[in-house]
Design a protein around this nucleic acid. Structure first.
Lengths: 198, 198
DNA sequence: ACATAAAATTGACCGCGGTCAATAATGAAT
DNA sequence: ATTCATTATTGACCGCGGTCAATTTTATGT
């Protein structure tokens, strides 16, 4: 079973991704239509689905790549020493995640791996996200009574929570940053304001 | 502007909901089709959309009602004194939330209010959820250095996080309960394992 | 060069959510 | 009863994601 991949395959796939990227650049992920992608790429509709399981698989890949670039930026910076520095570093990524409802929906759905063998692009970036954050929490100025990876997963949960609330018209006037701050304070600095226990 | 509501309207809406409920009972939310709902209710397709903005509005209502019944059960019980008791009480609701991907998706999308005037059924239940939990945290055996409502919102974030991870084949063998426990321990009992600060 | 199997592409077709101009039913006024 | 404005219902139609049997292209062995 030698599954030979023809050069043609790679060319076609590149054209599809190129077309999709152009559409997103001109309009948005929300406006992306498979029919428009194949029209621009000059292929038939069926070809698209020979290259991607479904539309979401393309979005997974495109969005995963953008998140990965944000993580490059994030991990290139100095280790944050305060909650505010954490928020500063995370803001660009969060802004992207909250830029469109459609983007956030795809991220929510694919941020966990679908199966053992099949870890999608977005799922991979969130494994990386947890690694990067966990590194901050080892020997840092933050709480030391917990597994760094668990702390990182908690931060992820709060980021999602803050973004989800931001999509409500009721709350969207408030910056994500402000919404996230109190959670992280309580999560990462629990001792600061802790009462003596009876 | 006296918007008179005809009795006929209520009858038709009731028939639509009844038909939808029957379909879910026989199969699942995932299998629910608007065309099947209107077929059983004996009305035209357009009638459905005169009563519900879209398919999700029906799901919002149906799922919101189920969550509300769970909250009735939850608030009827004694105030939990330990993390394990919290997990016991929350398990039925979490089991429902994680019963189908389609259910969880709708909950995720509508757990925040869409606008000030227009709080949907699911959004209302999560306001109630936070209230119920906040009551547990006032004068309870849990941390007293934080706003009870903020603590409750944090629990909500961890519940969503635990459920999201549970939809990954990689992790689904592990009960949601076990996944949630370490988060709640660190979130609600931060002092228990806290190192003295230097 | 030619034959042949495997891989890639095609496009008509389907399912299903959602729209809307046309039509029918309803309740109130005369 | 008859008219009439308002409200509810209808169903043909559209958009768009996704399928699949048929066809074309490619790589390989002779």
């Amino acid at each position: 079973m030698t599954t030979t991949i023809q050069p043609r395959t790679l060319k076609t796939r590149a054209r599809l991704i190129e077309a999709a990227t152009a559409i997103v650049a001109e309009s948005s992920f929300t406006e992306l239509r498979v029919e428009e992608v194949v029209r621009r790429a000059g292929v038939a509709k069926g070809t698209f689905f020979a290259h991607f399981k479904d539309k979401d698989a393309l979005l997974d890949r495109m969005i995963g790549e953008i998140i990965d670039q944000h993580l490059d930026q994030i991990s290139a910076q100095d280790t944050p020493k305060t909650i505010d520095e954490i928020l500063d570093i995370l803001t660009p990524l969060m802004t992207f995640m909250g830029s469109e409802r459609a983007v956030f929906d795809v991220i929510l759905r694919y941020s966990g791996a679908a199966s053992v063998e099949e870890i999608g692009p977005i799922a991979a970036t969130f494994e990386r996200f947890v690694h990067v954050l966990a590194d901050w929490f080892v020997d840092g100025p933050f709480r030391q009574d917990a597994d760094p990876a668990t702390l990182a997963e908690g931060v992820q949960a709060f980021v999602f929570q803050a973004l989800a609330l931001n999509f409500c018209a009721l709350n969207s006037h408030r910056p994500i940053r402000d919404r996230l701050h109190p959670y992280l304070e309580l999560w990462l600095h629990p001792a600061k304001t802790l009462d003596p226990q009876g």
